[in-house]
Amino acid sequence: MKNDSTFKLFSLSIVWVWLLFFSLVPYGLVIIASLLSHSENNLIQLPFTIKNYIDVNNIIYLRILEKSFYLAGLCTLICLVLGYPFAYIIARMKSSFKGLLILLIIIPFWTSSLIRTYSMIAILKSKGIINSFLMGIGLIHTPLPLIFNNTAVLIGLVYNLLPFMVLPLLTNIERLDNRLIDAARDLGANRLTTFRKIILPLTMPGIIAGCILVFLPAMTIFYIPDLLGGAKSVLAGNLIQNQFLISQNWPFGSAISIVLALLLAMLLLIYWKSTRGKKERDLL
């Protein structure tokens, strides 16, 4: 039995040491940093203060947080509306192409999101594909302002994050028991009632998982607003990035991150509660 405990001890301790040192300790440091002060000479210094949290409560920063939540929320909604019917059709397909079609969804999911954001520029810019096409057919005479504004950021976010919505939905809808739908129809429910009373509740874990996987990154992928947005398209991620690398105010940047993380944690808690004890928790 001695050998057994050696192996167990070895694997557990190496995993624990790594996670303690590279995730728990650093996350703790962010909390501590958010409670410290900042000066010209030191990135972080004593004394302890809650000034950073009071500073977050400033109309400029609250506006940015509010706008981030609004854009991320809108992005999540669009992804859900576009992604649900798509996932539903693919999941319930009986064609032999189904495997290939799923693979075609996984490929963008795995491709560098920076590259895909970059390709959006070529499509959206004033002499880009869409504008050239619309002007070519004479529908418009001046280019539409598609890039360097919030619309472009939204399009970029949806384009990047749609696979994150589709994949959990797909897994969830595939598990749907056909007999329940048939039973509902036999008992006289119309399509809408069947969807509302049977399909929607049963696919709720997939919907929530997809929404979380879209909403969380949408708040913080700073390079999408950076590349596609204009000067006014600063989101929560850009704000944190600026505090760390441009203003060099680490304590304040940490405080914003903590506020953001707490808001997001509340959403996760709702997810955790809604899938208690279910297999659907395995997101990927």
């Binding site: 995730s23 650093p26 680490w250 940047g253 993380a261």
Partner: peptide, 13 residues
């Protein structure tokens, strides 16, 4: 957890 939080936490560490 948002990647940016992991980024800054590592930077501080």
């Amino acid at each position: 957890s948002p990647e940016i939080v992991m980024g800054i936490s590592m930077l501080i560490l």
